[in-house]
Amino acid sequence: MISNEELLEKLANGFVVETEDDMSEDYRKLLVQTLTITADTELISIFSILDALQYVPTLNRRITELAIIQDELGHAHIAYRLLRLLGVDTDYLIYEREAKDFRNPYLMDLKLNNYAELLTLHALLDRAGYVLLGDVFHHTSYGPWKRALTKVDAEEGFHVRNGESGLRAMVKTAAGRQQVQAAVDWMFIMGLDFFGMPDHLKKRSLQLDFRLKGETNDQMRQRWMKSAVGFLDSIQIQAPVHWDSESDSYVTDFPYPCEWDTDQRRWQLDRPVTWQDVLGRFRTHGPYRREYVEILRRGRESYLALRGGGVA
C-alpha cells in the first residue's frame, strides 16, 4: 500500500491501478464500497424482474427477460469477483449479511405491477445503470474493472433497447399509453434518486480525486435526464422535468426531492423533503428486501440439499 499523495501523483500521470499494492488505504476502502453497491444493485435487481415475469405477454418476450436476468447475474458476479480479489468475504456478503445491510437502491426493493412498469424499468432504470457504469467504464483508474465493463456496457444497452421497443409498441393503444404514462410518472423520479445527493450538498469527492469516477452526481443525473427525456419525447410520454435555458439544464416540475408514500406507492409532489429524509428512506430500504434476500438464500439451500442427496 502507498500513501494518498503518492497515488494521486501517479494517477495524474495516467497510472492504472492493478493490484492492492498499487492502492492507498483510502483508495481501497472507496473501491470496496463502490463495488459493493454495484454488486448488490445488480444482484437484487433481478428479483422484481423475476416477479414481474407473470405480466410478460408472450413466451419469447419472457425468454428475453430471462436473458436480462442472466446478464444481471453476470454483472453481479463480476463485481463480487473483484471484491474477492480484494480480500472481501463475498460468501458473507451474499449469504450471511443481514438483509438490511445490502446497498442496492430503494427501487430494487419494490414489486412491479404490470408489463408497462417492467418495460419502464428497462427503459429508464437500466439507462441509469448504463450512465453510471458508463462513467466508470470511461474513467475508472482501476484496470480490472475497466476491462470487465466492456461487456457490461454492451449488455446494458440491450436492456434499455428492450424497454424502448416494448414501450414503443405499447403506446400504440390508448389503454397502453395510459399505463406507460402512469409508470413513468413514478419511476422517472426513482431514476433521479439513483444518482444520489446533489453536488452542492456533498463534500469534496475523493472518488473523483482517485478517478474511481469521472463525473459528479449532478452531471450524471443531467446526462441521464437528457437521454431519458429524448426517448420519452419520441413516444410522446411526459417526463416531470423540463429544459431550463437560464441554468442550461433540466429542472424538475416540482420541488425535488419530495416524499414517497410507501403504502400508496406514489410520490407526494406537494410535499418536499430534505436529502437527509431521502437517505433515511434508503437506509430503511423497501418493502420486499427481506423477501428477495430470502429467495436468494433458499435457492442456495435447496441446491445444496439436492447436491447432498446426490441429485445435482
Partner: peptide, 12 residues
C-alpha cells in the same frame, strides 16, 4: 432455438 429475441426480431 432458445434465442431470447425471436419475436422481437420478427416484429422489427
Amino acid at each position: 432455438l432458445g434465442c431470447a429475441c425471436m419475436d422481437w426480431i420478427v416484429d422489427d
